[in-house]
């Protein structure tokens, strides 16, 4: 239970950084923290205390395996999610570079041409 609360604290720090900080890079770091806490939540769902890694060794049958291994499906989902997060991070970094070229500042509060 404590692990879930700690995971939620990471999520809260990520949201705080995304909303309250003005520097674009700090907002991106907040976004990354949010994504990582979500991935951690997915892994924690499949976790089992004292479980073994989900690799079927030759001297085990499938019933024993399903009773003592951690769940492999969330691990597969998280792999995909990490890669999606990587793609989004690359796009965020590219946008930051282009925004700095055009607006000459990293302060998000200065970048407010579109309003109304």
């Amino acid at each position: 239970m404590t692990v879930y609360i700690l995971d939620f604290i990471i999520f809260a720090i990520g949201i705080y950084s995304l909303i309250a900080k003005r520097h674009i890079i700090k907002k991106i770091i907040g976004m990354v923290l949010i994504e990582y806490s979500t991935n951690l939540f997915l892994i924690l769902i499949g976790f089992r205390y004292g479980g073994i890694a989900p690799i079927l060794s030759p001297d085990m049958n499938s019933v024993q395996f399903s009773q003592c291994a951690v769940d492999p499906l969330p691990q597969a989902l998280v792999l995909t999610s990490i890669v999606i997060g990587l793609g989004t991070l690359a796009l965020m970094a590219a946008y930051t570079m282009k925004l700095y070229e055009k607006y000459k500042t990293f302060d998000m509060c200065e970048i407010k041409r579109l309003r109304g």
Binding site: L18, I24, K27, M31, T88, L91, M92, Y95, T96, K98, L99, K102, Y103, I111, K112, R113, L114
Partner: peptide, 12 residues
């Protein structure tokens, strides 16, 4: 300028 600002907001 405006496309980048709009795209970044949409992205986040």
């Amino acid at each position: 300028h405006e496309e980048l600002e709009a795209g970044f907001k949409y992205l986040i």
